[in-house]
């Protein structure tokens, strides 16, 4: 007895700046067993097997590397942790909004990483290193929960209107989550310098609390809360 099959419809953003004048949405159909579900990334890989001109990024296929961030039916997310059955058809796939498109679903993330670099995302400690390691109490370590898990997929920053309008000036939710991750770290000795670098009207304060970042984060993190903590620290520091 042959297995029942179903067709899944896709509309995928296609743009090759070397050839195309403007982007187009290309239709694809994928036939899969009726009772079979899969992650969206698997479906895109099968489409790629049919049309190898389709460009997209992917690596770990388990929501850890953050490579396959894309706009899925109007909402940013990771293709590798999005179930096909949860999506309304035709499934519209577009590149992450607000960043220049290199090709199809691949975007240029230079500005995103430049903003990330601005917050000095590494531990700064000018005290002599101890013999073994810099210790933290369980309470101090707990403050980093919900901050260190970011995988830099850029789903949050590219869904933020403030980042769309001012990507060179506003650090964006991903960068600010990491900024607070080091401000909150008991082992870091550069808290005052870190805060001083964020006092201008754009870097932090361009956040208007839209909370798109919280809505789309595939790791369930809350950059808006971290930004609130930075504001409180800045107020406390300025008093």
């Amino acid at each position: 007895m042959s297995e029942a099959m179903r067709t899944v419809k896709f509309k995928i953003y296609r743009f090759n700046p070397e050839v195309d004048i403007k982007p187009t949405m290309q239709d694809y159909e994928l036939t899969i067993p009726d009772k079979q579900d899969m992650m969206l990334l698997e479906a895109i890989l099968r489409i790629k097997a049919m049309d190898d001109s389709l460009a997209f990024r992917r690596s770990c296929r388990e929501g850890v590397c953050g490579s396959d961030g894309m706009n899925i039916n109007g909402r940013n997310g990771l293709a590798c942790v999005t179930l096909l059955s949860a999506l309304k058809q035709p499934i519209e796939l577009r590149p992450l909004p607000g960043l220049p498109v290199i090709r199809d679903l691949v975007v240029d993330m230079k500005i995103f990483f430049e903003q990330y670099a601005k917050v000095k995302p590494y531990l700064i400690n000018d005290e002599p290193p101890p013999a073994k390691e810099r210790l933290q109490s369980p309470a101090e370590r707990k403050k980093l929960d919900g901050l260190y898990e970011c995988i830099l997929c850029a789903c949050c920053s590219t869904s933020c209107p403030s980042f769309w309008w001012n990507p060179e000036k506003f650090i964006g939710p991903a960068g600010l989550l990491q900024a607070y991750r080091f401000i909150a770290d008991s082992r870091d000795t550069a808290k005052v310098e870190r805060l001083e670098a964020l006092t201008d009207p754009f870097s932090v304060f361009r956040c208007r609390g839209v909370m798109n970042c919280v809505d789309v984060c595939p790791k369930g993190l809350n950059p808006t809360r971290a930004i609130g903590h930075i504001r409180s620290e800045l107020l406390a520091e300025g008093n």
Binding site: K169, E196, A197, L198, T199, D200, P201, F202, S203, V204, F205, R231, L234, L235, G238
Partner: peptide, 18 residues
């Protein structure tokens, strides 16, 4: 640090507080 000549106080914390 992003410089701003035209904001109310030129400082994000103060603008926000005001």
């Amino acid at each position: 640090m992003v410089r701003s000549a035209t904001s109310l106080t030129g400082n994000g914390v103060r603008d926000w507080l005001w």
